[in-house]
């Protein structure tokens, strides 16, 4: 995303107050992360101190200060999923992609995270990929899903 695109998004919020979170969420959606460049632009255009933007961006898990992959894979490690083997599913994901939970693959295709309960424990182990939920996931099945996503253009 170019600077002018960032500016375009920021422009929508100019002259309004109390919009930082909304603005950051929109940038996150479009850019997949809150880049230092974007932070700088917000500071210049809206006059919000950089430390304030950083405070908010580092507080919310929905906002990322590092680039996130195209696919955000969140493996549930909440109690129910944990008991049903959630960690083995996580293991499989880590091995298949070659990164640890909390990391992003170097081709920016995958970001792997754990979450504590996605609110559908009966379906455990649960994995969420870009908002889509997968129930009773086995290590093998997740491996297949990842391979499919990887080979796609």
């Amino acid at each position: 995303m170019t600077n002018s695109q960032i500016d375009k998004i920021i422009a929508k919020y100019e002259g309004k107050s109390g919009v930082l979170i909304q603005l950051l969420l929109e940038l996150q959606r479009e850019l997949n992360w809150i880049s230092p460049e974007a932070v700088k632009r917000i500071n210049e255009k809206l006059g919000i101190p950089i430390s304030e933007i950083y405070r908010v961006a580092s507080f919310y898990t929905a906002l990322s200060l590092e680039p996130r992959g195209k696919y955000l894979i969140r493996v549930c490690a909440g109690t129910a999923c944990y008991i049903r083997g959630g960690l083995r599913v996580l293991d499989a994901a880590e091995k298949t992609i070659g990164i640890k939970a909390g990391e992003t693959s170097s081709d920016l295709k995958f970001t792997l995270e754990t979450v504590n309960c996605l609110g559908c424990c009966a379906l455990g182990p649960v994995v969420e990929i870009n908002g889509k939920y997968y129930g009773t996931v086995t290590p093998k099945r997740l491996e297949e899903i990842i391979c499919r996503k990887r080979s796609e253009k």
């Binding site: 101190p49 430390s51 304030e52 950083y54 405070r55 580092s58 507080f59």
Partner: peptide, 14 residues
């Protein structure tokens, strides 16, 4: 923030 007006430091993370 309030006295100096520069907001160089702040809270981060949670």
């Amino acid at each position: 923030k309030e006295l100096i007006g520069v907001s160089a430091i702040n809270f981060a993370m949670r």
